[in-house]
Design a protein around this nucleic acid. Structure first.
Lengths: 212, 212, 212, 212
DNA sequence: AATGAATGAGACTTCATTCAT
DNA sequence: GATGAATGAAGTCTCATTCAT
């Protein structure tokens, strides 16, 4: 605390760069997958030396973990914000998914899927990120329980099953294949959500929005 | 034909060995993912020398492809057998999924999921296996269309969306997490199918089987 | 000697096969060079199993050595036959070279060059084949000495130098490059010999044959 | 330009290292031939790790190519320098050969021979180095043509044949065998050149220098 | 005797990680 | 702090040689 300003200046630069690294790591991860993401490429794209990467993150795993956490914190924040809303549970979950998927190229949604479903990545990294991961799952579970309690969803389906189904909704690969066939992201979203919510006992009319 | 026994004996051993390799490759693939599956490890687990692996498969990719095809041919056969049955489309698809997942550790089901959803694996191998892959997807699509035609499923949902949802049903990772929490494989299966079929407009009572 | 006929029958077959192996080895060696000549390919081209190759030759080196000796014995025989002729030394040496190069694709000539000049091959093999190699060199040296003695060649040039120059006459590579440019094998031969013999003090008219 | 010294220092070291690698590659190539030259051995002899080699040259072929070009550029430069001299063509070509062979162990001369005559090496590498290779051949051809025009050499011998003969003059293998027998490098050179130049119609007295 | 499946040393190459500058 | 050259373990694949049948 004896040198607060200079430190915070340096510190600010440092954090900006760290952010940049995380963003680049995200880019590369989404493009190439975990194993084909090399530290060399990340450093090159960020425009720093490889060694500098290691000043921020001691291991590739740590970078990926930090990156994962950054994303997951964002998702969790979004989830909590929506959680506090006064709407039906279904509306809130729909809102959540749509928000997650509303960034360019649906990065956040795909990342969430990868974190939860990918082996390559998950095996190496996730066991270290249990807490936040558990919190996200917990939050969604709580919402689903609320939905069961207020009659929106089917009470016969165990919540954990509802939850895992929720997170399996949209695999990036199949998503991409649909995009390639010319489907509109919003349409894909709507139908996927529709299948899910009707499946767990919610109300969903595929016709309605089509008519309006 | 002059030396039928000796040749078939050798050949039998060869095929047994090849089968063993494919099984081990499957094990390792399921445990570690495509990129972390090394030829060294496969050879070591099979108990043969590295070079021997290459007598059976000229490249890692070839092994993975052979292995993929073996599994997918099995799945396709199963699918066609069931396709010819006289039952509701839903029953047939349920039967299909249950059959696929009925082997120990649900390997086939998980593999199908990986083949369809994994990037690592798919990018390297699937382009070579397009035909069979496309056939499986086509077969399921046809069934879903039949279901739409006979009133079982919602005609407002585009078939490709129904199809991709179908193949996203059970990610191995979430499946495993449910198993770890003590859920019964059959139960997981039933609820997942239930959510899916109700989601696409089919009939499904989560209560019924519970009562019987 | 107790079973002379059967043994000689078997033995004959054996020798025929050995001859075939040597011929195939020659083919492959000339096509691909020593290091790219694999035992697999030789066996496959001969139409026998790899193991059978090893019944004839304990090591790749041995095969190459045997093959080298076969060729060199042929060349030596040819050389001795010509040696005994009653002609000028130059005529005899010319005859020798033309004979060596008179087989299809000039195999023997190229092989002689390779044996004498190639590093790859020679380092591995030649030290084992000293005797015959030395004999060929000796024979040529003797002829050159005879030529020096009877006034055909320049006595100021040390015989060993004349000899090595003689064996460096036609490298397969440059030979091939000339063929590719459309030169006639006989023409190449004539000019090369001409340069050499004139070089060592012999008589050679490049014009003569052209005119006739 | 803001950091000229540090950059040039690093760069200098780098180039020194690269030079060292090229020299070692040359050593090993001359000792063992192309196919028996392993990246491991080069690294070990240079005293660096295998990976470091790949910082300088992305592939074995690239190293060999770079090395080839370095040598050939040297030879070409030397050739052009001599070309511009005012002397008889024969004197200039003699000067060229003597210069090429004047380094310790006659490395350059042997390398030139290998580049032009070795299959192993040439097949892999030379097609990438055509331009410089062609230029060297062209330069020598031009000199020989000049010699034919001014009456030094026999006009009846086609220039391409003169050229290939020129490059076949001294095979490293036979050269070494002469050295082993106690001949002096200069003597070998003189006689070989003598045979060649007399052979193509030039003037050469084996006696002269002997007397002086 | 003949086979060819099996072996394993060794080649090339990549990349996460370290460390002297 | 920042750099990027250096490292070396690990991965894929080849091929001479052996050996059970």
């Amino acid at each position: 605390m004896d040198t607060p300003q200079p430190r915070s200046l340096k510190e600010k630069q440092r954090q900006e760069r760290e952010l940049l690294i995380l963003q680049v790591a995200e880019d590369v991860l989404l493009e190439k997958g975990y194993r084909d993401t090399s530290m060399d490429e990340i450093a090159a794209r960020v425009g720093i030396a490889k060694g500098t990467l290691y000043l921020h993150f001691a291991k590739k795993e740590d970078l990926m973990l930090a990156f994962f956490e950054r994303e997951m914190v964002g998702i969790l924040t979004c989830l909590k914000k929506i959680y506090a809303t006064h709407q039906s549970v279904q509306s809130r979950l729909e809102k959540f998914v749509k928000t997650i998927y509303s960034d360019p190229k649906e990065r956040r949604g795909h990342l969430m899927y990868i974190f939860i479903n990918s082996d390559d990545f998950t095996m190496t990294v996730k066991h270290q990120a249990q807490p936040i991961f558990a919190e996200i799952v917990q939050e969604v579970s709580a919402l689903l329980d609320e939905g069961k309690a207020n009659g929106e969803f089917d009470t016969l389906i165990p919540t954990p099953l509802m939850t895992t189904s929720f997170f399996s909704l949209l695999s990036p690969r199949t998503y991409r294949s649909l995009i390639e066939r010319g489907y509109d992201p919003k349409e894909i979203m709507r139908y996927s959500l529709g299948i899910y919510f009707r499946g767990i006992g919610g109300q969903f009319s595929f016709a309605t929005e089509q008519q309006s």
